[in-house]
Amino acid sequence: MTIEFFAGRYPYILIAVLLGIGLYGMTMKRNLLKKVIGMTIFQTAIYLFFIQGANKMGATIPVYAEELGTEPTAYMNPLPQVIVLTAIVVGVAITGVALSLILLTYKRYGSLDEEVIIRRMRESA
């Protein structure tokens, strides 16, 4: 465990921590909205993972510049950025649907607390 190791890999560690936080929110929180927030954090961690992988030391954004030509090391990797763009849109879409579902759940059971909802479900059944 040397300094170089951390210097080269600290993003991974941070991302793993963020991912853990997101997962914690998704699984441990009882409030549905907080679960969705956890889900968003979880997804964000994944976006960050892709983004940091696109990074190249000393490279610029992947927009062609006259003075750099088409030297591959001069531009960051465009593919992960595309993937993240897609993934973000997917994430937004899921969040939107999740919010609609939560809205309807709240309307029906008057609560966002998972255990309360389950109790009310049993009562009404």
């Binding site: 080269g8 991974y12 190249k56 000393g58």
Partner: peptide, 10 residues
């Protein structure tokens, strides 16, 4: 490693 220009992805 972070920012490695020789990584497989790059």
């Amino acid at each position: 490693l972070r920012g490695d220009p020789q990584s497989p992805a790059s």
